[in-house]
Every structure is written in structure tokens, then in C-alpha cells.
Amino acid sequence: MLNVALPKGRLGEKVYGMFEKAGYECPSVLENSRKLIFENEEKGVRYFWVKPSDVAIYVERGAADIGVAGKDILLEYKPDVYELLDLKTGVCRMAVAAPKTFRDDPTKTLKVATKFSAIAADYYAKQGRDIDIIHLNGSIEIAPILHLSDVIVDIVETGKTLKENDLEVIDTVVPISARLIANKSAYKFNASTIEEITRKIRELI
């Protein structure tokens, strides 16, 4: 039985659709219930929904053999897993955004609010810029408005939220999309199944 961790939410449903088309369906998954684990014995797969940022943990620690996680999570937490496929879905970008009136003053430490501390630190370290990271867990856009930070580093999909809060993108850090990941040990012992799933899904992209 292959354990598959899917990110709860819209992206997860879309990704499940890819697994379904690849021939690994489990119809009960999309039923509107509070159940979190779904099994299709005949196809040898078991799906479960977890918080998107936790998928990598489930896979790295072997609770799931494979899973789907955003590139943002992989860059932030650097889990020791195989990154088998770019699913080219859930496409967005990690970007630096600031109020329209913002002018960078290189003589001052830049205050950066973000959920992705490691990515932000790495991005500014490469530029040799001295920054102060303010780690927030949500509603990042509010930080520069309340003068908590100068800029934010966050995921931008359409830019609508930024616009409504008078913010604009000033630089793209890295493009993001959903990735198929696998536990290293599980890959050794289920190589043929995992490779087949990867191949079939690749054909769909």
C-alpha cells in the first residue's frame, strides 16, 4: 500500500485529479466528509489530507511514501526527500512587496516581514543586505501598513491582495509550483510503483 500525502485545499483537489487521471483513483476522497484518510485497496493507494506546510514532514519521516508540496515549503524547510516532478500547477511566485511609497535606504537595516524566514534570509544574504526578519504566520500584507516592517516576502498569485492593500511587487525571489516528492527510503523499496506514478503523471502535464 502506497501512502500519499496531499495538501488540504484547492491545490490538493487539483492534484488528486492528476492522480485519478493517472489511474490511481479513490472516489471517496472527494466526498464532503471530515474523514482524512481514504483507501483504494485494489489500486494499492491510500490518500490523506494534511496541512500543506506539513506534507514535507510526513514524507521526510516516512509516514507518507510520496506527497505533493509547494516549492516554497521545500526551499524553506529543506527536507531530505526526492523531488521527482514539477507538477506545473499551483503556479505562483515568491516575491518582495512594499507600499507604493517605499524607497529603499541602504544605510538602514531593512525590516522584512515574512512567513518564509529562511528564503528571505537567503535572498538578502546573497545581496549582502542587512535585514531584520519579522516572522509572522499570516496576514503578512498588514505589516508594512502598520509600519511593523518596510517590506514583505510572500507568495503572490494574482497580486489582488497586494493591490487592495496598496502594495506592489518590487522583485521576484523565486517562481513556485507544486512538486511531487518521495521519501528516500520508500523510493528504494517501492521503486517500480513510484516510478510508474511519476511517469504517468508526467505524461499528463
Binding site: E60, G62, D80, K184, S185, A186, K188, F189
Partner: peptide, 9 residues
Amino acid sequence: GFVKDVPKC
């Protein structure tokens, strides 16, 4: 080296 059911090398 990997052994079955142990998630890390």
C-alpha cells in the same frame, strides 16, 4: 544504505 520501514538512510 537503507532498510525497509526506516525512513532515513
